[in-house]
Write a protein that binds this DNA or RNA. Structure first.
Lengths: 243, 243
DNA sequence: GAGTGGTCTAGACCACGGG
DNA sequence: CCGTGGTCTAGACCACTCG
C-alpha cells in the first residue's frame, strides 16, 4: 500500500521534518546526501533538493557543498509579518476603516528627520500627519515626512481624501525599506490623538523607504530616502504572528 | 556580447523585478505566461517558474492557474524577523553574554497563564525567571512557564547554569509557535530588574510553543502548550528589519 | 582532488479553475 | 474544455569547499 501515492517534494519535506522532530536526526547530525535520499524515496534528486532547500531557508537545516546537510544546532526560527496597507490591517479585523487628516504642509524637517532622510541643510519636505480609525475610534497615528526631491508629485495631492500611505504605495517606486519596532510613552499630544492616557506605553513602528537610483549600478550610495513614517498605535495594540 | 552569460533563475527574477519597479508592468497587469517568458529568455520553463515562484511567495506577484500571473495590486510587503536564541541576539551586537537566574520553582500558575497554556485547574507548572545580560547590563527579563506535563524532564534541570531558553531549544520538540509583540509600562519590579525608570515604555515579546501530538492526525485539538515566555526588553530596545 | 549541493534542460503529466 | 501554473524525471554540468 505504500507505493501507491506519488512522491512529491512535500512528501519528502514532511518525512524529513518528522525525523528531525522525532530526534531520529539530532541537531548537528549529518543527514544523508541528496542522492541517497533520492534513492530512498525513489524520486529524482531535484525533488529532494526542493524539499531540503525550503528547510534550509527556514533555518531548520544547514547546507554546505561538500560538507553536506546538517540539522541546525540553533534552530533560529523565523517570524514573518505581513505589512499591509493600514486600511487592510483595519478592515481585516472586521472594523470599518476611517481616515482623518491632521496636518499636511511643506516645512523644514527637524534635524533628526533631516538626518534620517539624508536631506541637505536647506531641503524642504512634505509633512503629513493623520489618524487612521477603526470603527471611528483612533487606531494609529501616522507622522510622515515625504522627500519632495524624490516624489515631487506628492506636493499637489489632496491628502484629506487619500492617505499618504495609500498614495505612496500606488505612486512611488521604492526598492528597499526598513522597519523598526519599538515602545514609546504617550505624551500629552499622542494621548489626546489616540484616546490614551498620558504615560501609557504605545507600540511604535518606524518605516523608511529608499529608491536605489533606477538602473544605476552605484547601489546604496546613490539611494535617496523617499519617505519616513512613524506609526504609533493605540494602547493595547499587539502584533501577532506564527512561527 | 549578450549571449555570453548563462541564464539563471536569478537573471529572470531580476529582470522581472526591474520591469515591475520601472512600471513597465503595472499593478494589476497580466504578465506573459511562463512559456512565453521562457521563450523570451531562451531558457527552460522550470527556470522561469523558479524565478516567479519566489516573487509570488514574497507577495510581489499573484499567480493563479489558468488566470495567469499578475503584478500584485497591493504590494503587501513582508517583513521577516529572525528570532534567535537570546545568547545569539546579544553576542551578535558584539556584547558579552551573561545570564542570571532570578527564580525557578514548581508552582501554581496564575489564572491568566493557566488559561493561555490550557492547563487544568490543578495542574502545576515550572516557573523560570531570569535576566539575560549584555556586557553585565540587563538586556531582557525572561518570565517563563513550562508545562511539566509536556516536558517532565525540565523539573530536574539546573537552570542556574543554562537558560530555560537554550535548554528547551535543545531538548523540547515543538511543532508550532506564536509570537506577539507589544509595549508595556515598567512597574517597580521590572524597572529594578532592567535598570529602567518606573513608567518607562518597554518592548515586550510573548512566545508560546505547542506540540501537536506527534503523528496524530487530530491536529490542533490535541495540541498542548509546551511553554510560554514573556520577554521584556530594557528601555530603548528596537527591533529592526528590512523589507 | 573529489564529493556535495546548486542549477539548467527538455519533455511530460497533472490539477486547478476560468470561460 | 483547455490554458495555465505546479511538479516530476533523468541526465548533465558547474561551483564550492573539505580534506
Amino acid at each position: 500500500m505504500t507505493g501507491k501515492t506519488r512522491i512529491t517534494w512535500q512528501t519528502v519535506q514532511d518525512e524529513v521534518s518528522r525525523r528531525i522532530k522525532a530526534r531520529i536526526w539530532q541537531p548537528g547530525d549529518l543527514i544523508p546526501t541528496e542522492a541517497e535520499l533520492a534513492a530512498e524515496f525513489d524520486c529524482a534528486r531535484v525533488t529532494v533538493n526542493r524539499a531540503l532547500r525550503e528547510l534550509a531557508e527556514t533555518g531548520v537545516l544547514d547546507r554546505r557543498r561538500k560538507a553536506g546537510t546538517r540539522v541546525a544546532e540553533h534552530p533560529t526560527r523565523r517570524a514573518v509579518f505581513d505589512i499591509p496597507i493600514l486600511r487592510q490591517e483595519i478592515t481585516a479585523t472586521g472594523a470599518r476603516y476611517g481616515y482623518a487628516l491632521v496636518r499636511a504642509a511643506v516645512a523644514d524637517p527637524p534635524v533628526p528627520v533631516r538626518a534620517a532622510m539624508r536631506l541637505g541643510a536647506d531641503a524642504r519636505a512634505l509633512t503629513v500627519q493623520a489618524l487612521h480609525l477603526a470603527d471611528d475610534r483612533p487606531f494609529v497615528f501616522e507622522d510622515r515626512w515625504i522627500n519632495l526631491g524624490a516624489v515631487p508629485a506628492a506636493q499637489t495631492v489632496d491628502f484629506t481624501s487619500i492617505s499618504a500611505n495609500e498614495w505612496l504605495v500606488r505612486n512611488a517606486v521604492f526598492s528597499r525599506g526598513e522597519v523598526v519596532f519599538s515602545a514609546t510613552v504617550a505624551d500629552a499630544r499622542l494621548a489626546e490623538l489616540l484616546g490614551a492616557a498620558p504615560g501609557d506605553a504605545l507600540f511604535c513602528v518606524d518605516r523608511r523607504t529608499w529608491d536605489d537610483a533606477a538602473g544605476a549600478d552605484a547601489q546604496r550610495e546613490a539611494a535617496q530616502v523617499i519617505t519616513q513614517a512613524q506609526l504609533t498605535y493605540g494602547p493595547g495594540y499587539r502584533l501577532r504572528t506564527e512561527l
